[in-house]
Design a protein around this nucleic acid. Structure first.
Length: 497
RNA sequence: GGCGACGUAGCCAAGUGGUAAGGCAAGGGUCUGCAAAACCCUCAUUCACCGGUUCGAAUCCGGUCGUCGCCUCCA
């Protein structure tokens, strides 16, 4: 079964066949005008997962993402904070990297900034004018929608619908109400660049057409973005690029991620799309108190098929934290058992026993399901279930292991289970250790103290001095925030909140 | 008003013709000196509602109700 991708343009799943290698993948990034919110987190986590899966399948991928670092909202952000627009853009670009690093979104191969492509944008616009697809009016340049008959192909809108539904008064300088700005003349006090049409700056839309062409070429394989960009942004990108190059299609697969909304404060069951009317929950705020490890947030965001709209829910976020902790614990258990098996090796037969064979088969079946789910338009919800199954089976196997010595077959089975678990979670970009918690790691002295106490407790337990054993456990719990787990292979511990 | 999507258990969510995955929550049990974690069992005769097609539908068709997104800055 080959991989299927739902293409917005056709409205159906299509077999993925890249035009050429590397796969050319462009994602509409954000306008750095504020702290990134959960909607951004979802968008970039989803596209990062698509990228990781393509690479997992063996494709080389060139992944490009832009920052629209000049825009009305950035100018407003600069005014709001009393800093130049460029500085506001830089500040929130840094916020983007900070937050995305935390939730495991890998850096793009190429990040493009609109302000670094002004000459190319001007050249693009000039050529559109020469080819009769654009016209200048008083320092502004507009794209002529009627010059591009295929307009509306992506969003499924016809001209009548677009005109009938228009809620804003069209600029009367436009030849057609649907025409949109390619270049905007500068108003007093705004940043500007020199152009053949006077001082001004790029309109929204043209930057993506230009930067995609400059970095990936005239035709690309995958273009991602939020579902709210289908119209007009992506419709306009198609019009600009195809009018310029004459090559169709500009994009082979359009991938649009569903919107994330938050319940309104009234609590009446209504919800509002994130970033609409200024309503948004920042990534930073969700991760602030440490109760939601960053990988668990990513797990939450991948919990639904990416095209569906998602209503943010604290309760579901907590459910994802619990799920992630179970995975994390399973990994810890495997690591612990592998260490134990390595130091307690027996020279028994290397023939795998019934439990080992069973575990191996169960994990292979679950992995097949994982791959089938990902092949089916990146159905991460299904894929997560497959990982649950792996964790489940690994824990089951671990529970059945006794003390004593481990045969080579046991060690091999444990290593195989760990490798499988890390492989599939790696494809989804979900780390199985809380790197941020590890950053506040205990000192060596502290660890030594803890291990001394554990040794004392073991001695007390061997002597069946339960009162002393419990006293030590209580000390560890309250003074060291350490939870003890007794296993057939010895006591283990971990730090809790 | 136009375009599109959706409506599955207490919550979230897979499932596009063959008899309802998974997670969280809840209840019971196993293991344990007691715990913790894990594991086992239970938890939708039913998929918004009404008709229709079919041997058979959550899945297809028609209608009704409801929700959401886009059409305007947005990821």
């Amino acid at each position: 079964m080959s991989m299927q991708i739902y293409n917005t343009e056709s409205g159906s799943k299509e077999t993925f066949e890249p035009r050429q290698l590397p796969v050319r993948f462009y994602v509409c990034g954000l306008t750095p005008k504020n702290e990134p919110h959960l909607g951004h987190a979802r968008l970039f986590a989803v596209n990062d997962t698509v990228r990781r899966y393509l690479e997992y399948l063996g494709y080389n991928v060139t992944y490009v993402q832009n920052f629209t670092d000049i825009d009305d909202k950035i100018i407003a952000a600069g005014l709001r904070e009393g800093i130049p627009p460029s500085q506001a853009a830089r500040r929130y670009t840094e916020s983007y990297f900070r937050d995305m690093d935390r939730i495991g979104v890998r850096r793009a191969d190429i990040f493009t900034y609109v302000t670094e492509f002004i000459p190319q944008i001007i050249a693009f616009v000039s050529e559109l004018i020469e080819k009769g697809h654009a016209y200048e009016v008083e320092g502004d340049v507009f794209f002529s929608v009627p010059s591009f008959p295929a307009y509306g192909r992506l969003s499924g809108r016809d001209a009548d619908a677009m005109l009938a539904g228009a809620r804003i008064e069209p600029d009367e300088r436009k030849h057609d109400p649907r025409d949109f700005a390619l270049w905007k003349s500068a108003k007093p006090g705004e940043p500007w660049w020199e152009s053949p049409w006077g001082k001004g700056r790029p309109g929204w839309h043209i930057e993506c057409s230009t930067m995609a062409k400059e970095t990936l070429g005239e035709q690309i394989d995958i273009h991602g973005g939020g579902a709210d960009l289908i119209f007009p942004h992506h419709e306009n990108e198609i019009a600009q690029t195809e009018s310029l190059t004459g090559k169709v299609p500009f994009v082979r697969y359009w991938i649009h991620t569903g919107m994330l909304s938050v319940p309104t404060e009234e609590g009446n069951g209504d919800e509002e799309k994130m970033a609409h009317s200024g309503t948004f929950v920042t990534i930073r705020s969700v991760l602030a108190d440490g109760s939601v490890p960053a990988p668990a947030l990513r797990l939450y965001l991948l919990g639904q098929q990416y095209r569906a709209n998602l209503v943010f829910s604290e309760e579901q976020l907590r459910a994802s934290v619990a799920r992630w902790r179970r995975w994390e614990q399973a990994r810890m258990t495997l690591l612990r058992l592998i260490a134990w098996a390595e130091s307690n090796a027996s020279d028994e037969t290397a023939e795998p026993g019934e439990p080992e064979q069973q575990l191996t088969e169960q994990l292979a079946t679950a992995k097949d399901e994982f791959l089938a789910a990902m092949d089916d338009d990146f159905n991460t919800s299904r894929a997560l279930s497959a990982i649950d199954e792996m964790v489940h089976r690994a824990n089951d196997y671990a529970n059945a292991l006794g003390g004593g010595a481990a045969s080579p077959a046991v060690l091999a089975a444990l290593r195989q289970a760990l490798a499988t678990l890390e492989e599939v979670t790696g494809v989804l970009g979900i780390a199985l250790e809380n790197v941020e918690a590890a950053g506040s790691a205990l000192s060596a002295e502290r660890v030594a103290e803890i291990e001394t106490l554990i040794a004392e407790r073991d001695a007390a337990r061997k002597a069946k001095n339960w009162a002393e054993a419990d006293r030590i456990r209580k000390t560890l719990d309250e003074d060291y925030h350490v939870t003890i787990k007794d296993t057939p292979q010895g006591a283990t511990w971990n730090v809790h909140d």
